[in-house]
């Protein structure tokens, strides 16, 4: 993309800092929802797809709000690409980050798809011509180019979430936070969004933080952070985090389907190691051949 004037991100994106997002000793008391986040620390590498899981009330959404500066922590730091978040630079940091919330209706501001994608750009004082270009480009990217003049009532939940994603992309954000963005959608809508996010992650090297209930989705992430009662309970690769069924169940979550399959077979004396249905079926075939 060539001359975009004052639409360009105000950052030097080519920072070689590996720990792209760094959270240290974050503490926050959220009175209204009786949530207390304590001593939250973790790092996220650039370009990673991180899933944050935890049962309702564990503080996941609160953490999301802190990351994007909608709430301010009582103590601790959040560093995005080497810059520590504070009240003065939050506006600049937001130019790097976008968030998609859970309720498709409650973040749809514009009267039409076009107007909604434009909203963030208008706030940035983008010129009309730049906006037109960006809207066209990113509505195409999410597959909504034919629906630009539709009103929200005419759209499904999945379509509205795609509009939200297009809005985030149009702002040239390289970090997307998804706050349970698929939990209010029907299975088809959920699938479409998950596929879209995966595609975007691959093409555009976005850093994605997905707060989710969907254990299957978390299992496909690069990295997984488990929250429990406002604390980081576990942090690692999904295969590691979900390995111990008892442990993960103790915090109100469950293992993915693969995990349950492995558990069931273990009860019958067959130990499986695979991390996908394909691998497991393969192992079972080997078992039969051995006999």
């Amino acid at each position: 993309m060539s001359q975009l004037g004052n639409c360009k991100s105000l950052f030097n994106i080519y920072n070689t800092n590996m720990d792209f997002i760094s959270v240290r000793d974050l503490n926050f008391r959220y009175e209204e929802k009786q949530i207390l986040l304590s001593d939250i620390s973790f790092d996220i590498k650039k370009g990673a797809y991180v899933a944050i899981v935890g049962k309702n009330g564990s503080g996941k959404s609160t953490l999301a709000k802190l990351l994007i500066g909608l709430e301010t922590a009582d103590s601790g730091t959040i560093e995005i690409d080497g810059v520590v978040l504070n009240d003065e630079n939050i506006k600049h940091i937001r130019s790097r980050m976008g968030i998609v919330f859970q309720n498709p209706d409650n973040q749809f501001i514009g009267a039409t798809v076009r107007d909604d994608i434009a909203f963030g750009l208008e706030n940035r004082c983008c010129s009309k011509s730049d906006m037109a270009l960006l809207i066209e480009q990113f509505s195409n990217k999410v597959g909504l180019e034919k629906l630009l003049d539709k009103e929200p009532e005419a759209l499904s939940g999945g379509q509205k979430q795609r509009v939200a994603i297009a809005g985030v992309l149009a702002m040239q954000s390289d970090i997307i936070i998804l706050d349970e963005a698929t939990s209010m959608l029907d299975p088809r809508g959920r699938d479409t969004i998950k596929k879209l996010i995966r595609e975007l992650h691959q093409d555009k090297e976005l850093t994605i933080i997905s707060i989710t209930h969907d254990i299957e989705e978390a299992y496909t992430a690069d990295d997984c952070i488990v929250l429990c009662d406002g604390k980081v309970f576990d942090h690692g690769k999904p295969e590691e985090v979900f390995k111990d069924a008892k442990r993960i169940r103790s915090v109100g979550l469950d293992v993915p389907f693969i995990g349950k399959v492995k558990e069931a077979f273990k009860n019958h004396g067959i130990v499986l190691d695979g991390n996908s249905e394909d691998e497991i079926i393969g192992e079972l075939c080997e078992y039969t051949l051995k006999r």
Binding site: F265, H268, I270
Partner: peptide, 29 residues
């Protein structure tokens, strides 16, 4: 998919537990 891979699983097997049992039995034979 198990069926396609050659495992006989009863049509009425509804839960993971039932499936695991059916397949394990076959393997142990």
């Amino acid at each position: 998919r198990l069926r396609e891979a050659g495992f006989e699983v009863d049509e009425n097997a509804r839960t993971i537990e039932q499936i695991a049992e059916a397949v394990s039995r076959r393997i142990s034979r």
